[in-house]
Nucleic acid binder design. Structure first.
Lengths: 226, 226
DNA sequence: CTCAAAAATGCTGCATACAAAATGCAAAAG
DNA sequence: CTTTTGCATTTTGTATGCAGCATTTTTGAG
């Protein structure tokens, strides 16, 4: 599975990385969908999009097929691709599954993670707190996602991490809309405090519980704005 | 040359071409990988494969990108695609995740399924039993998979069903190898009996438990042959 | 004026052509 | 004898062209 490239500031020491056009296109299109630049239900015109992105139709079509497998776009025979539209039920269904996956991840991570890895999550957490203090919503949001991704990766279970990433990616567009008020934001931060505490104590049961609760609350926060 | 053999309902071999070529190609390549016709780690030569399948490189490449997103093949920059090779740990990891998903499905299905849907699973189950009696391993195997897929679909949770299908698809190739002896086969059939009983009683807890147990045993059966 | 049928337009689906990169091999240098 | 370098072949990556289908517009009859 390819990394969601534009997630965290490039803490990774980037190799010379002549990134293939394919990966770039996939990431670019994914961002355009998540940020609403490509509206749900709208057709993705190959010529037009290709000109806009400065590539020909061939690599663009390949990227679209890739995203179709990811579930972000839908392929309609003889009519090309349309941006997939998610209903409220779809979102709820995805959250239910993501909840199950993150609960599993919480349990596993407390066993499999190294101390260094936990320390790394702690650093991201602290940085996120600073963004909360500074009311830097966008960056807070990205670090928030990063923490969930990191916890899934702490399991050292590639399948679990990729599934979590896939679902989270699909839900990004939704969460991108829902802006909760200060009270709910504070509650979310408090839950994240619980998470890092449980993780550092390697209390899998507690971590699993708070992760699940966090997601259910996330649903409560966004369900009326879909 | 192997039959399409993608799923159970269609044993047709007619190239009626009602479905788009893309879908056909994806299914065809997936089968070739699952059945080992394309060995793990081997490169997928575009010209050669295209000639073999009677299509040009363009739609073939699109299908390969799709499968890459599914995780069945790996894209190496400037070197094309290779069939993904799974280690024993990979398989175990996938089974752990699949177990979690099927347990969730078992719980939900008992609430959301209609009586007709449950009856449908019962019919597949009975047919599978006949294949067991007749020692028709291949068909038994396909119906077995179909039951797990059906149970996931009974949840009416698209995200859950698709994730389950994705993981099961990746594991197909593995299970394709592991041929258990008569005793273990009988045990597996007994577990399936438990499943259908729990489902018809709408006992989510019991269904969930037996589904999880079934998968752990499946791991026990194949773990030494990887 | 309305509606239906046919032409026209635009887009997708697939194939082919071209460009860039990698691999293999052979010959020459150390 | 080993290693390196440069050429040739193979293979991937990207662009373009053509045919078919869908939708829309136009035209003709009622």
């Amino acid at each position: 599975m390819s990394e969601p490239s534009s997630d965290l500031p490039t803490s990774n020491s980037g190799p010379i990385q002549r990134t293939a056009l394919h990966d770039t296109l996939v990431g670019r299109l994914r961002d355009m969908i998540i940020e609403g630049e490509l509206a749900p239900g709208s057709r993705m015109h190959e010529s037009q999009l290709g000109e806009q992105l400065g590539v020909s139709r061939t690599p663009l079509r390949e990227a679209i097929k890739y995203l179709a497998s990811e579930g972000l776009v839908e392929l309609v025979p003889s009519r090309g691709a349309v941006v997939k539209r998610f209903t409220g039920k779809d979102v709820h269904d995805m959250i239910i599954v993501l909840k199950s996956l993150e609960e599993l991840a919480g349990n596993l991570a407390c066993v499999t993670a190294t101390d260094q890895e936990i320390a790394r999550v702690r650093r991201i957490h602290d940085e996120m707190l600073q963004c909360y203090e500074a009311k830097d919503r966008l960056r807070y949001y990205k670090l928030n996602q990063a923490i969930h991704t990191e916890i899934s990766q702490l399991t050292h279970n590639e399948a679990l991490a990729s599934m979590q990433a896939l679902l989270q990616s699909r839900l990004k567009r939704i969460r991108f809309i829902g802006h909760e008020g200060p009270d709910k934001w504070a509650a979310a931060v408090a839950e994240h405090e619980e998470m890092i505490t449980a993780l550092e104590a390697r209390d899998g049961k507690a971590l699993s519980e708070v992760l699940g609760r966090h997601l259910l609350k996330a649903w409560e926060r966004v369900k009326d704005s879909i």
